[in-house]
Write a protein that binds this DNA or RNA. Structure first.
Lengths: 218, 218
DNA sequence: CCAGCCCTTGGACCTAGGTCTTGGGGTGCG
DNA sequence: CGCACCCCAAGACCTAGGTCCAAGGGCTGG
């Protein structure tokens, strides 16, 4: 929409930010600091993931600063529910658990930062993410690279049989039913399913079904 | 579109029929007989489920006469893949296996008949189905009623927690992940999932996910 | 205060789903 | 011809998903 000047002009380009953290003082701190920037407007605060998802839908912020550890619904859960939403989500966590990085990025986060970040850098980060960039704290980046390329679902071509199986998965059929429909052993179907999962880069049949319907392969 | 006179007029209301059966002589028999009717036009023939799905998409018939036992992809499989298609599918089977009726109807069949049907009755059936009716051979009807009301997903209300779990299922998360996100034990999640499946009237998480996205609960 | 609902957890149990590995049957190529 | 490669199929094996059953705590309304 607008260029990446790192700073949009006065009023029309205000970056709307939503803050989600279960700790009120953190929210307050972030809010007052971010509001000082004349290109950023904090439009809301959420105390848990549930609220974050709800407010993200209503307030339509450009950027969501999201804590991971929260009651009711945590950051990862909220992230999952925001799939497909236009909001740019920046995970902002205190505890540095490398195991969270992969799932978060795979779930569509646009950034992964730690709370010890320099405030000025955070502001820069918000602008960068709003501009379309993805950015990771150094430690997070390391964690990502460590466990391999998590998100390269290289469009490996499916074989005829595999497409067939995928379509039936997307129709909600069980392996047994698929086997009957294709007149092969259930074991065979499992093999095909396994290959489909690998090629699509997903972990189970449910994700495969979702993938299929979203990409019109249904 | 047109009234249910049981017989649409001359040329504009021709009922386009596609025949799917792996036995050529059966196809030939059906075709010649149906083509004698001046309100019915057989627009194509398929020798297996694969072909049936393909031709249904290309020829856009009004009615598909579908055999169950077929190579490559059987009737049930074809039916599953035609979900959402406007084609009215009439299952036309030779073997009378009551166990097939439920799945077929649940998969969206508009009719379930046996091949020993009186030809004149078949023609009537094609017209009726084209007119929007659903009809079952007596034996099929019995089989349906026998195994309970297969398709009354009475919209039992989900509890707050259950909706939450459903949304996460629809996001493709595993029970373990959902448990982490909601900060509860995995067993708890399983209980919720189980309840959701029951209330939605589906058999597994994949179907639940599909249900959720289709009904906008995602 | 008790009844009833919701949420939670646990244990025991069974089955569907997935992974890994192997082998047969094409087909293309040196 | 022999080799390599791919698709399909299938057996052995392990794990996640789901069912059934039971029970305790919190909240609400009669």
């Amino acid at each position: 929409m607008n260029e990446l000047t790192g700073r949009t002009d006065g009023h029309s380009g205000m970056i709307k930010v939503l803050i989600a953290d279960d700790h009120p003082v953190v929210r307050q701190g972030l809010r007052t600091f971010l509001d000082l920037q004349d290109d950023i407007a904090v439009v809301g605060e959420a105390g848990d993931g549930e609220e974050a998802v709800e407010l993200a839908g209503r307030l339509r912020p450009d950027v969501l600063l999201l804590d991971l550890k929260m009651p009711r619904l945590d950051g990862l859960g909220a992230l999952a529910r925001l799939a497909g939403s236009p909001v740019r989500v920046v995970v902002l966590t205190s505890v540095s658990d490398p195991a969270d990085v992969g799932p978060a990025m795979r779930a569509g986060a646009a950034g992964f930062l730690y709370k010890d970040i320099d405030p000025a850098a955070l502001v820069q980060a918000v602008r960068a993410v709003h501009g379309g960039q993805v950015l990771l704290a150094p430690e997070a980046a390391e964690a990502m690279l460590g466990n391999g390329p998590a998100a390269p679902p290289s469009p490996a071509p499916l074989t005829e049989r595999e497409r067939e199986v995928l379509r039936l998965i997307a129709a909600g059929r069980s392996n047994r039913e698929i086997a009957r429909s294709l007149a092969v052993a259930e074991k065979t179907v499992k093999t095909h399913v396994s290959n489909v999962l690998m090629k699509l880069g997903v972990q189970d049949r449910t994700q495969a079904a979702l993938y299929a319907v979203r990409n019109g392969l249904a």
